[in-house]
Nucleic acid binder design. Structure first.
Lengths: 200, 200, 200, 200
DNA sequence: AATGAATGAGCGTTCATTCAT
DNA sequence: TATGAATGAACGCTCATTCAT
């Protein structure tokens, strides 16, 4: 593969060294984030990303040598948004009610969307390479388990199963927020209640 | 598209008139169902469907003039599985407990999977044309609303919102059952509880 | 790689099942053979092969899923031309003079060119995969060693080194024949003499 | 091509006027020479040359407006290495034996390789423009003819044909030296003998 | 009616070269 | 002058769909 050409060039994003390039990169990331969020990883084309961000295809590839890498960078960049957000919720989980925690979780999802943190939609794209996705998934699961185990002396045996379900609930919250702008708030409230009851 | 040629010829599947053709069609549908279920609509190739069902590509297109139509036929054919299943649940909903209904819903999803009824994974493939998807979505929503409104004299104002959430919960059940064979049962139980609490 | 799509589809040439396809394949192989011979493997594009053989690019790829495979098929198809030719020369080598053998070798190269057997130009294209090239190289080396050892009871210690040189002489004969049509015959005679002296 | 812009600006390398620039140019030439020698003209990218010589791509193009020109400069610069070397051999050819001359020729090839004089690999890159290649080829041919004609009052009629073959033998010597480090010396000795016999 | 060959737009990606700071 | 960003034609390849036998 890429090693044929040059072992020295890592299959990683190239950092721009000038302001112009940094702007480009931001524009690309924002566009890609939106598109991935709208249509999913596979359905988005590099050409589309280039066009929507007014970037020449060659420039896009200068900074992001593959579509995979582009997704990886988004994951890397926004990964901490999720984990930090979850950490904060974990921190307050001891004293908070199920309702409060649910509100925080849904609020987190809403914030992620405002910040274009596409983590949730990209997290289980199946692509070879890059252990990042798994790492992020694990990191989220770990926090969610803690949230589920809050206040208990012994964590429940089915903690990991429940964390998976909870993760899916967060993805559901994301999807619902995107789908129907008019119903958005009502749906959000519903999911919040749902999550609260799951945490209870 | 195909409308370019002739408005008169509908983009619909051609019904085979002989036994041989009927078998072919069955094989194709079964294969397509499996593949769509495994990898999603977009990731499946017509060639792949042809090969896995030992059908010549030309024959495949004879019966199903586009990939869209193929999905549509699956939706149409298996749509009634879902609606019928939901109808049955609606019928018993008056006297059943939330737990029972939840069990029935999850059981329905499980059954759909064994019958290769790909309805859930295909229901929101975004493709132009074909109002079928919307119709099916509406049909499901309607039943789910009834389930949510069971036993009440006036249906709750937020019934439609709640039905959307419930529909997503069913999709979630489908996804979880596919994802982790080892955890399958445990996850199923979790979702069941979740749904029960949402119905309660 | 290709395994992502389907393990069942081997990365090998697909055999056409109809006459039309068989003709296509012949046309493609002939064109590819000419082009590889003229400009070398790397410099030839699949588009070029398609155009020169009046084949749609999709059709080209139907029969030859990669450029590599196309070269491989040529090697496979024409490989025996070389080895058979060399075998014949080996068979007569016991009684023949160095001059005669040289004449035969150069004649073989000429024949290969008339038959468009691109073996010589393709034999050391460096591509991952496909042990065919190595096998062919070994097969040729083996025959050439026998030719060099003809009439001797014990093969010379440097037989393999000399075989390499002899192989390069054959490649040289090929190149010279292509390069200068006007000098072709004279050059051929020269190389023949050169090879004869190397065999002496 | 570049001629599209301005006929006035020759497609020639720009000579740097400061020490820093001269060093840059040296680094570029050395790197390019190595790469061309390793992988051949076509397989080497300008970006690669820039990176391996720690030069910005823009700077590379400042000194060498096209890849062609870069090869041309190498040819020009190292052309004299070959011709001078051949001249020296021509000078001594009158009294030297075929063996000695062969040894000198092979020695010259070896020296060229240590000096990174990529002349031989680049000499018949087929690119439009630049008569330099032809000139160099002619210059070499001329010297080789003299070597072949040494000691004779009338040059043989087939002198030019033989010179072509001899030139190919030198290229062969170059290729063999690169190919198999372990066999290098043995192969060199073989070619030397071969050339000697061709000169005899 | 059944089959497999033909088609071509489009995809992800590369690379020589030019532009702007 | 030096640098790195910008450009876009071209490449190898895929795939939904149509054609011809």
């Amino acid at each position: 593969m890429s090693s044929q050409k040059s072992m020295a060039l890592p299959d990683a994003a190239v950092a721009p060294k000038r302001q112009r390039g940094r702007d480009r990169v931001e524009a690309i990331l924002a566009t890609a984030s939106d598109l991935f969020s709208e249509k999913g990883f596979d359905a988005v084309t590099m050409t589309e990303i280039a066009q929507r961000s007014s970037t020449a295809i060659g420039s896009l590839y200068r900074f992001f040598p593959t579509k995979e890498v582009l997704a990886g960078v988004l994951l890397q960049r926004y990964g901490s948004h999720v984990t930090d957000g979850l950490d904060a919720i974990v921190a307050g989980a001891g004293t908070a009610s199920a309702r409060d925690i649910a509100a925080s979780l849904v609020g987190l999802v809403r914030d992620l969307q405002t910040e274009r943190s596409v983590v949730l939609p990209l997290i289980d794209v199946q692509n070879d390479g890059i252990a990042l996705r798994q790492a992020l998934r694990d990191a989220m699961r770990e926090r969610l388990e803690k949230i589920l185990a809050r206040g208990r002396t012994t964590p429940p045996a089915d903690g990991s199963t429940r964390a998976i379900v909870l993760l899916h609930l967060l993805k559901m919250a994301w999807a619902l927020a995107l789908a129907a702008p008019s119903l958005r708030d009502a749906l959000e409230r519903e999911v919040e209640g749902l999550i609260a009851s799951y945490l209870g």
